[in-house]
Amino acid sequence: MIIKINGKYYKIKKIEKNPNGKYTITTENGKKYEFKNVKIFSEEELK
């Protein structure tokens, strides 16, 4: 799965839903981001 952050695309390693309704997304390079609204892309959609 792929996520778009600030115009760049990252591969997703893990998605966790937090009790506060936000999502914590861990990218393949180990960085964590927290979002309220998340749009996930499949690799097929990006081709």
Results as ranks from 00 to 15, higher is better:
residue 18 N to D: 08
residue 12 I to D: 00
residue 27 T to N: 02
residue 1 M to V: 09
residue 5 I to E: 01
residue 3 I to Y: 02
residue 23 Y to N: 01
residue 44 E to H: 10
residue 39 K to L: 14
residue 44 E to S: 09
residue 3 I to E: 00
residue 35 F to R: 07
residue 8 K to P: 01
residue 15 I to F: 06
residue 11 K to D: 03
residue 6 N to Y: 10
residue 47 K to L: 09
residue 45 E to S: 13
residue 16 E to R: 05
residue 11 K to R: 13
residue 39 K to C: 15
residue 20 N to C: 05
residue 33 Y to D: 00
residue 22 K to R: 14
residue 9 Y to P: 03
residue 32 K to T: 14
residue 16 E to T: 11
residue 1 M to T: 06
residue 25 I to S: 00
residue 17 K to I: 13
residue 20 N to V: 03
residue 21 G to I: 00
residue 19 P to M: 12
residue 23 Y to W: 15
residue 2 I to A: 08
residue 23 Y to S: 02
residue 2 I to M: 15
residue 7 G to Y: 02
residue 13 K to C: 13
residue 14 K to Y: 10
residue 47 K to H: 12
residue 34 E to G: 03
residue 30 G to F: 01
residue 16 E to D: 06
residue 22 K to D: 11
residue 6 N to Q: 11
residue 28 E to G: 05
residue 25 I to Y: 02
residue 47 K to F: 03
residue 41 F to Y: 12
residue 28 E to V: 14
residue 17 K to N: 05
residue 45 E to V: 07
residue 22 K to G: 15
residue 20 N to Q: 05
residue 3 I to V: 11
residue 41 F to A: 07
residue 35 F to M: 13
residue 3 I to Q: 00
residue 18 N to Y: 05
residue 6 N to D: 11
residue 29 N to I: 03
residue 12 I to C: 04
residue 30 G to C: 03
residue 39 K to D: 12
residue 24 T to R: 04
residue 24 T to E: 10
residue 5 I to Q: 01
residue 7 G to C: 08
residue 11 K to Q: 07
residue 22 K to V: 13
residue 35 F to C: 15
residue 8 K to I: 14
residue 13 K to M: 13
residue 24 T to C: 06
residue 2 I to C: 14
residue 21 G to Y: 01
residue 44 E to A: 08
residue 15 I to A: 03
residue 25 I to E: 00
residue 17 K to Q: 10
residue 1 M to A: 07
residue 44 E to W: 01
residue 28 E to Y: 11
residue 22 K to W: 15
residue 34 E to A: 04
residue 34 E to C: 11
residue 42 S to T: 13
residue 7 G to V: 01
residue 23 Y to L: 10
residue 11 K to T: 06
residue 5 I to S: 02
residue 16 E to S: 08
residue 30 G to E: 04
residue 21 G to H: 02
residue 12 I to F: 02
residue 26 T to M: 06
residue 37 N to W: 15
residue 43 E to K: 03
residue 11 K to E: 04
residue 26 T to N: 02
residue 34 E to R: 07
residue 19 P to C: 10
residue 10 Y to V: 12
residue 2 I to F: 15
residue 34 E to M: 08
residue 40 I to K: 04
residue 38 V to A: 07
residue 18 N to A: 11
residue 26 T to D: 01
residue 36 K to L: 13
residue 21 G to F: 02
residue 36 K to W: 14
residue 46 L to Y: 06
residue 45 E to F: 07
residue 26 T to V: 09
residue 36 K to F: 12
residue 9 Y to G: 02
residue 15 I to P: 00
residue 45 E to L: 10
residue 34 E to T: 14
residue 44 E to R: 04
residue 21 G to Q: 02
residue 24 T to I: 15
residue 6 N to E: 09
residue 3 I to L: 08
residue 10 Y to F: 10
residue 5 I to R: 02
residue 1 M to R: 05
residue 23 Y to P: 00
residue 46 L to I: 14
residue 33 Y to I: 08
residue 41 F to L: 12
residue 43 E to N: 04
residue 25 I to Q: 00
residue 33 Y to C: 09
residue 33 Y to K: 02
residue 19 P to R: 10
residue 40 I to A: 06
residue 13 K to G: 06
residue 23 Y to C: 06
residue 46 L to N: 09
residue 46 L to S: 07
residue 13 K to N: 07
residue 22 K to P: 03
residue 9 Y to C: 13
residue 11 K to C: 08
residue 24 T to D: 04
residue 42 S to H: 11
residue 46 L to E: 06
residue 25 I to K: 00
residue 9 Y to L: 09
residue 5 I to G: 01
residue 41 F to E: 06
residue 37 N to L: 05
residue 32 K to S: 09
residue 28 E to K: 08
residue 40 I to S: 05
residue 21 G to D: 03
residue 38 V to G: 10
residue 5 I to V: 10
residue 29 N to F: 07
residue 13 K to Y: 11
residue 43 E to I: 03
residue 18 N to G: 14
residue 4 K to G: 06
residue 43 E to S: 03
residue 7 G to W: 01
residue 39 K to H: 12
residue 45 E to Y: 05
residue 15 I to Q: 01
residue 8 K to T: 09
residue 14 K to F: 11
residue 5 I to T: 01
residue 39 K to W: 10
residue 41 F to Q: 07
residue 23 Y to V: 11
residue 10 Y to M: 13
